[in-house]
Amino acid sequence: MQKIAIDSGNKNPNFIGSWTIEPISICDDLISYFELNISKQKSGIAGSSLNLDIKDSVDITIKPKEIILPGNGAFKLYFDQLFECYKDYVEDWTFLEQISDRLEIGSFNLQRYKPGQHFKKLHTERLSLDSLHRIFAFMTYLNDVQEGGSTFFSHYDLEIQPQKGLTLIWPAEWTHAHKGNILKEGSKYIITGWMNIC
């Protein structure tokens, strides 16, 4: 067997879309929701179990039907903005028009990391039969982080530093293996979840 290099053409994309949501105050509202709802906070779950050797965070998991509950208006504003990001993503990759109306948001997480915490394990968002329905992951950084806390996409040697409002959409596949680097200072807040095929 001989390995052959093929012409990479005139593009070398990583398929990670990025935007800044507006108004940026949505981020403050989501952080406030997290901090005011202490009873809903739980140590981060990775997969179906708690394993701090994989993921060390505090999370609030929210089901889509909870978005319409009183006091949850920030989520509707956020998902209106996320949908605008996704529409722009589809314009860049027009093949997605074939499935764009068949995607839905499932349960999603608000997460907080403190110094020393991070998502330690390199992982993807579509690893088992339980996650086959995931097509894209989304994440918005809710605050600026000065020291550590970046997201590292290993196949692209790409490190993204959290900036308030920075929103990412990327494929859930093995091609986008990633992890969180150790937070060294302050707190890191994110909202994250998946776009699922229905």
Rank of each mutant, 00 (worst) to 15 (best):
I31C: 03
F95C: 06
W19G: 08
L132W: 03
R126S: 10
K76S: 10
N51E: 02
F152P: 00
K65V: 00
D157I: 01
S128N: 06
L166Q: 11
L77F: 11
R134H: 08
T61G: 13
L158Q: 13
N181A: 09
V90Q: 00
E147A: 07
F136K: 07
N14V: 11
S18T: 04
N37P: 11
I99H: 00
R102P: 09
I67S: 07
N109D: 05
I21Q: 06
Y78F: 15
I21C: 10
I67D: 13
K184E: 10
S57P: 03
T124F: 13
G47W: 03
E125S: 06
H178E: 04
I6A: 03
T20Q: 15
F34V: 01
L122E: 12
D56S: 09
S154M: 07
M195C: 02
I31E: 02
K63D: 15
G116N: 02
Y86Q: 10
W19A: 08
S187E: 14
F15H: 11
S107R: 01
G193S: 02
G17Q: 07
L96R: 00
T124V: 00
L30W: 12
Q111L: 09
I182M: 11
P115V: 00
G148D: 13
Q117N: 08
Q117K: 13
F138I: 06
Q146S: 15
G17T: 04
T151H: 02
L77C: 12
F138V: 06
W93A: 14
K55Y: 03
Y33F: 15
N10T: 01
T61Q: 12
P23Q: 06
Q111C: 15
D144G: 11
D144L: 10
T61Y: 10
I190C: 14
C198H: 11
S100D: 12
T192E: 03
R112V: 08
L69N: 09
I99E: 05
D53R: 10
S57T: 07
S57H: 05
V90L: 11
P13S: 11
L36Y: 08
I21F: 13
E185N: 07
K120C: 05
P70A: 08
P171I: 08
D101S: 14
P13A: 07
Y189V: 06
G9E: 01
A5Q: 12
Q146F: 14
I21H: 07
K188E: 09
E185I: 00
Y156C: 01
N14E: 11
G47F: 08
F153S: 02
A46F: 13
N10Q: 08
P13W: 01
K114Q: 05
P162E: 01
Q117V: 04
G165T: 07
L166I: 06
F138T: 06
F75Y: 04
K164T: 06
K120L: 04
D88V: 13
E173K: 10
P13C: 04
